[in-house]
């Protein structure tokens, strides 16, 4: 469903992505990990065109993202995205946050959007908080609202950019639970995260990045069982040894 071929990107003379090739099939969950500064956040943002690329090709279903003529807004309305810092809209209530895209992008009626929003908020366990403003919620709750906001668009795939790294430890599991449930329901997901427990539980494949390159792209069992590269081994031993 998502296909990346030889994707490269530069910030000035600094190369952030170097010939990255990978794919996500329908219903697949792919976890992207790697040390900070390895380009994994940049990589996931290229999928829906939030970051442009200079070389290579990205295709989502039939749409070529890297083509200048592509209607990115239409593409983005079909791919949900969850950010590290939640990025809920602070001037709108939780309910309005989930309704906004449905109404302004998909053109759904107010009542339909509202029903859908309430349903999804219930699904992420926040039905009681619909009338609150984002800042009145905890980080974990905000992130679950953000997931609901993405799901409200009936996406064909969900992108997660370090969804738990800005959270206090005790809230991480609430968010991961929602994500695991989503994976089990068959959602196509690309997830940048350090949560190896999550990867072991639901990932189909793991992509390991370092210095802008994809070093390893393997099934979950191969990656955790016998990572081939030294760097992946070092990375795993560092984050798992504590």
């Amino acid at each position: 469903m998502i296909l990346m071929e030889n994707v490269s990107k530069w910030y000035g003379s600094f190369q952030v992505l170097n010939g990255c090739t990978t794919s996500v099939s329908k219903g697949e969950v792919v976890v992207v990990c790697g040390p900070s500064g390895s380009g994994k956040s940049t990589l996931i943002k290229t999928v829906n065109g939030l970051e442009t690329i200079q070389e290579g090709k990205i295709t989502v279903e039939e749409t070529i993202v890297s083509n200048r003529k592509t209607n990115l807004n239409q593409l983005r309305s079909r791919i949900g995205m969850v950010f590290q810092n939640f990025e809920l809209f602070p001037h709108m209530s939780v309910l309005e946050n989930v309704k906004l895209g449905q109404m302004k992008v998909l053109g759904r009626a107010d009542s339909e959007s509202e029903n859908k929003a309430k349903l999804l908020l219930d699904r992420v366990g926040l039905a009681d908080h619909a009338a609150k403003f984002p800042s009145q919620l905890s980080g974990g709750q905000q992130q679950r609202v953000a997931i609901a906001r993405g799901l409200a668009m009936d996406p064909i795939a969900m992108l997660f950019d370090e969804p738990t790294s800005a959270l206090d430890p005790e809230m991480i599991n609430d968010v991961l639970d929602v994500m695991v449930e989503l994976a089990n329901d068959g959602m196509t997901m690309m997830v940048v995260t350090h949560e190896m427990g999550f990867a072991k539980k639901v990932a189909d494949r793991v992509v390991f990045m370092d210095e802008g390159k994809i070093i390893e792209d393997a099934t979950k069992d191969d990656f955790f069982g016998s990572p081939r590269s030294d760097r992946a081994q070092q990375f795993l031993s560092k984050i798992l040894s504590y």
Partner: peptide, 21 residues
């Protein structure tokens, strides 16, 4: 920029990102 990206990510056009967010 985070808010801008969040607006774009749900498919809002640049104009709508400015108006609504």
């Amino acid at each position: 920029i985070g808010q801008r990206n969040a607006g774009r990510a749900i498919g809002l056009s640049e104009t709508k990102v400015y108006i609504h967010i």
